[in-house]
Design a protein around this nucleic acid. Structure first.
Lengths: 236, 236
DNA sequence: CGTAGGATTGAGGCTCTTCAAACGCGGTGG
DNA sequence: CCACCGCGTTTGAAGAGCCTCAATCCTACG
């Protein structure tokens, strides 16, 4: 399932400078480094599962993870795609609640894991870390507010445009680049971000392709006309 | 616009015991009390407006406030209904960002206001308060995750059932009570919570009435069959 | 008593979902 | 090497669910 073939000191982690933890003081970084373990998850493996009790907090070192909630009828709604530097699972930890979502690796992934006790004790001893998390949570709240409004008011076509632009960002797809980075998402995953049926996504991608807004071969999607997509997505 | 005809010491505030601030230490409560001012907002008045810079944080002492985001086409999406004890506007304050939402009084409302500088200095000096806010933010994140999934997956009929039950809670409507508390929401507001058109809400309320799930006269809605609504809303 | 804002009703149409069937394509075993 | 899977993708057709627009009805309130 997971192996510990690698270990990275937080102090030397190349990802940390982009992460929420970049401004942690030296002492706190040390504490994290001392108490954490590292693991690899293969594509498709689950970091944690909705409804279970959190045993600790994850920090994503490499790879992408989809975070989703399973609805009543078994359909998944993807809440966000996490990438290197992101902290995962702190919400349930702090709320003293079970996970409200499942986290699953979209690619082979490297993750650091800080056990519950250590995490809470670091949190307890560091007002600064507390504040970092607070800011992070507030930022996420802002994103969620945006998503909620988008979901409620925009058409599927509009939402797909927004989603493609967002993924372009997340996956670091460079528009100038000849060879776009592969977005490891099935049509179903795309549908579960946008909040629609798989078939609808397929038809709309087809339309976008015909309108020369995107190029696509299999799962590789390349954005040709970001400005037109922005317009379609009614982003201001 | 707003008058300061009343002033309540936080220490003596009857609402505080239900609020996020109930576990604040005595010293912090004092600081809040010292730096805050109180005001009344009439129904329809705006506490703060989307896009503007936060000048401070609000604590709701009495009344209900709708918090909404205005979409591209001018349609509002109501994110939440706040009630006595709720803290308002802290997110933008902490993110050092403009308000992403507008807050408008649904009824005549009493509010305490803590200016930005004081709020931040109290926050800075109190790890415990920091932690309270963090928990609050995480709780809100959980609610938003739920709403997002609901919006993406449930039908309008299902969402309306959920919304009615939620409002029943928020407004403290007692089911046994002969005379239900008036829910001060127009059909349009209801539509803006559920994420649909006003006409659709009207038709569905009509259906619910025919099915004897609710009673309603004007804006007064009384839930007769909460269990059936739970079933319709597919809540587990 | 008149007016304005909200509530209601009806008709028509568009978006999106659902279901069913067929198609590709990478992998596996004969 | 080829046939056969299995999974994801694609396509088509039919219809349900919602939205929009326009007209009308209430009703609280000045």
């Amino acid at each position: 399932m997971k192996s510990s073939k690698f270990f990275i000191e937080c102090a030397e982690c190349s990802v940390r400078k982009d992460s929420k933890l970049s401004s942690l003081c030296h002492a706190d970084v040390e504490k994290f480094s001392d108490s954490k373990s590292c693991a690899e998850y293969k594509k498709g493996q689950v970091l944690f599962h909705e409804g279970t009790r959190p045993l600790g907090v994850f920090c994503l070192n490499h790879g992408k993870v989809k975070v989703f909630k399973t609805g009543f009828d078994g359909k998944d709604q993807i809440i966000k795609i996490s990438r290197a530097g992101d902290l995962l699972g702190y919400k349930a930890m702090i709320s003293e609640d079970t996970y409200s979502v499942t986290a699953e690796a979209l690619e082979d992934t490297k993750v650091c894991f800080v056990p519950k006790g250590d995490f809470l004790s670091i949190l307890d001893g560091s007002p600064h870390f507390n504040n970092i998390l607070l800011r992070e949570a507030c930022k996420e709240l802002g994103v969620m507010t945006e998503s909620l409004t988008s979901l409620a008011q925009k058409s599927v076509r509009e939402r797909l445009a927004v989603t493609l632009l967002m993924l372009n960002d997340t996956y670091g797809l460079d528009i100038q680049d000849e060879t776009p980075v592969e977005i490891n998402l099935t049509r179903e995953d795309l549908a579960n971000i946008v909040g629609t049926a798989t078939e609808t996504i397929i038809r709309l991608l087809h339309d976008f392709k015909e309108e020369k807004l995107i190029e696509s071969k299999g799962r590789k999607i390349k954005i040709l006309e970001p400005k037109k997509l922005i317009k379609i997505g009614q982003l201001y």
